[in-house]
Design a protein around this nucleic acid. Structure first.
Lengths: 228, 228
DNA sequence: TAATTTGGTGAACAGTGTTCACTTTCTGAA
DNA sequence: TTCAGAAAGTGAACACTGTTCACCAAATTA
């Protein structure tokens, strides 16, 4: 048995790739509702039971879709966090990038926080060591470092625990991401008629989140001006 | 036809009540996964098709469960908001109450933000007038008033738009509620061994949210001390 | 070439939500 | 009180679903 990719292995990867490609296509547009094994099989011209030679279950297949989605989310936020820009911009960009990426694939993001039956994902007994290795865990690590950097720069309140603060930032980002994937016109829900764009509101939210972390003397008014 | 409740009407309400009671029982513990029409029919000793004489569809039935849940959430947050307590306490309590109530019925809360297939609920073309009449909309109104009160007291930054601020607070609350219903040990996910209780972390989060709203001069360090 | 693993299939199982023709029960008016 | 009509309830069926399993053919290995 060689370490090279045998023709059989290459063929296998090809079929497997076709499956997740078709799954990605239908999942991105119709979500879990439109993704049935039989339909997937029809799209790739195989029998339904063939899929079970490549994936143990439908859930396993969808888990892979979520995984690649979170990898992109991680990579994007990671890139932002170490970009060449002032801290205040980078910090806010972490939050906005997270939310924008979630909104690009609402079904993926929603599914990542609920299993097939819409029930809460119970991640019982998961400890820190296990969590830190997951994509979610590494994205969280980026946030912790960002809080630490802000504290060392004197911008963020040094009294705040970086881990708890990062969790709070994550929760705040997650909340807006979820609300906006579920109600696309959420920012525009106003009694007045002046429109507020999605991106403008995301910026506003990111700003408020960061004001909460700033040192008592450092808090400034948001540079928020509704555009377009 | 009288306005009184005829015996037939009373009987009908009784059966209907038995259905939602059974549905509530199984939904609260097992969520949408365990709730099937056939099982429900078995529990109330009727045939499955009988249920369709009372509810147009399974979704309609579940919508009612969500509705009563949000009514309780609304009533709780509403009570807190006009309680006899200092503003800083009431304000934070709105956030913590929201999160704690969500955690009491994780399946209800999760379902309220995703349809049966786990796909995002698309509330397209919903305008403010319609939104303001829903339970979500009225709970949101409570938040807006709270922001306004904080501004008139000089505690919150008067430059902030009350509606956008209330949305941000809602998003932040929703985010933690969702994260905690999905990962019960979220607050305890720490590299260190010192435990942080759920309630302690919720308080910490609420505090950060409020720091973000405070006037530049008013920001104080959080009075957060990990208890128990 | 022979043996064995792998890839692929169709039929079936146990579920699901929902519909529909049908019967039974109850109700409101003549 | 009788009787038409509505309401309540039923069982069988439809069209799905994820999943399994015996079976078959093709590719790989010995």
């Amino acid at each position: 048995m060689s370490l090279e990719a045998t023709p059989a292995e290459r063929r296998r990867l090809k079929v497997r790739g076709a499956i997740i490609e078709a799954a990605e296509r239908v999942f991105a547009t119709e979500g879990e509702a439109g993704l049935s094994i039989r339909r997937l099989a029809e799209e790739i011209d195989y029998s339904p039971s063939a899929i079970y030679k490549y994936f143990g279950s439908k859930e396993e297949l969808i888990d892979e879709l979520k995984e690649v989605f979170f990898e992109r989310l991680l990579s994007r936020v990671g890139k932002i966090s170490c970009a060449d820009a002032p801290f205040s911009q980078r910090g806010r960009a972490c939050v906005t990038t997270y939310i924008v990426t979630a909104m690009e694939r609402p079904h993926h993001y929603a599914a990542a926080f609920s299993n097939a039956q819409g029930a809460p994902v119970q991640v019982q007994s998961e400890d820190w060591a296990a969590f830190a290795k997951t994509n979610k865990g590494r994205a969280f690590g980026v946030l912790v470092n960002m809080v630490r950097e802000g504290q060392s720069l004197g911008v963020f309140d040094p009294e705040l625990d970086p881990y708890l603060s990062a969790k709070s930032v994550w929760a705040a980002s997650h909340g807006l991401a979820q609300l906006m994937t579920h109600m696309p016109n959420f920012p525009a829900l106003l009694p007045t008629d002046e429109p507020v764009s999605a991106s403008a509101f995301i910026a506003f939210h990111a700003d408020l989140v960061f004001r909460g972390l700033q040192s008592p003397g450092e808090v400034r008014h948001p540079d928020f001006t509704p555009e377009d």
